[in-house]
């Protein structure tokens, strides 16, 4: 761990000021990812801004029926909150699929969004990694890449986003609320995380998200939606708990008279960000749930998938997981995270 200046933020504006003045500053909330990365010497912030005492710890229902979850609401508090359980059980389930109870007690909503990849090479400062040290190359390409991306990778990075909660938020079309030097703004969830390469910033795997200098996440808004029954969060991994996803699927369906009127599917563990394909989702609309249509959807959303060697199996695994998750959602039998047989 490097030496740093520790600052307790007294307000959101104070935090923004510190972050704006020092581009190498980092925000400390639950610390479960930042402190870990600092111990591995992957993050070397010059300033650590502790925002834990800021008033961002509430969950509130908004007039339009949406829920606002403050950036400092712990993962556990969000998952077990009655309003969250009623309004967006998919989110609660996704959160409970991740990490461990201890980590969920400490980790925060905002921190979960800022979580960095679990790529072996990113975590080992002596290994090449374009995300950690731009220009050093990607060790994972041609290396050990069992846990890496099959979708949306670039020639310089095949890392995946490790979050479960974010996969749920992506499926729920959440909105990220941020504050920065220019004031507040909203970012649609699908625009918050980025692929390693995009049109706007090019091949920049060091940038996980679209936050600007000095901006911090203050909360997440989850719109009122209808996946009260027909949802699931299905996570597949190498051990049955306390492990990152090989593939996960957040699925929500709206059914009217047995016909799908809307569908939302986000994939975790397969890309640099939670993966959605809204055009593929459209093909589910107007359909009666069936293994055939779910399989066709899976083929469609995975059509750009490319394996890297060790992770070739993820394409097949993702296909199976998508079909099962949609079946679970359609039948209203969401996966319970403590149950190890798959519904």
């Amino acid at each position: 761990m490097n030496r740093f200046s520790y600052v307790k933020a007294t307000s959101v504006d104070h935090a923004v000021d510190v972050l704006t003045a020092d581009p190498a500053a980092k925000v400390l909330a639950g610390g479960t990812n930042l402190v870990d990365l600092m111990k591995y010497d992957v993050e070397r912030p010059t300033t650590v801004v502790d925002i834990k005492r800021l008033p961002l710890g509430d969950i509130e229902a908004l007039d339009d029926g949406a829920l606002r979850i403050g950036a400092l609401v712990s993962n556990a508090d969000a998952a077990y909150d009655r309003q969250v359980e009623e309004n967006c059980p998919l989110l609660a389930s996704a959160i409970l699929a991740g990490a461990s109870p201890q980590l969920r007690n400490a980790a925060t909503t905002g921190g979960n969004l800022m979580q960095r990849t679990r790529c072996y090479y990113f975590y080992d400062p002596s290994a090449p990694c374009n995300k950690r040290d731009p220009g050093t190359g990607c060790g994972a390409i041609g290396g050990v890449n069992r846990i890496h991306a099959i979708l949306g990778a670039s020639a310089s990075c095949i890392a995946t986003h490790p979050s479960d909660m974010c996969v749920g938020l992506a499926a729920l079309d959440a909105v990220v609320e941020v504050s920065g030097p220019q004031g507040k703004r909203d970012i649609a969830f699908e625009d918050f995380h980025r692929l390693p390469k995009d049109d706007e910033r090019g091949d920049r795997p060091d940038l996980d998200n679209t936050l600007q200098l000095g901006e911090i996440v203050t909360g997440v808004r989850v719109p009122r939606q209808a996946f009260g029954q027909n949802y699931t969060y299905l996570k597949l991994r190498d051990r049955l708990s306390y492990a990152f996803a090989l593939v996960s699927v957040a699925a929500g369906l709206t059914l009217e008279n047995g016909v799908i009127t809307s569908a939302s599917v986000a994939l975790g563990g397969v890309a640099h960000k939670p993966w959605r394909d809204k055009r593929a989702e459209d093909m589910l609309k107007g359909q009666t749930p069936s293994r055939e249509i779910f399989t066709a959807f899976a083929e469609r959303i995975l059509s750009p998938a490319v394996g890297q060697g060790d992770n070739d199996f993820k394409i097949s695994l993702a296909r199976r997981a998508i079909v099962r998750a949609l079946a679970q959602a359609a039948s209203g039998t969401p996966q319970r995270q403590s149950q190890k047989s798959y519904a």
């Binding site: 400390l28 610390g31 479960t32 650590v48 502790d50 201890q102 980590l103």
Partner: peptide, 13 residues
């Protein structure tokens, strides 16, 4: 009363 991994908490926080 809630459980935490003390290794990931900076004591000052």
């Amino acid at each position: 009363g809630m459980r935490y991994n003390s290794c990931l908490l900076l004591a000052v926080s």
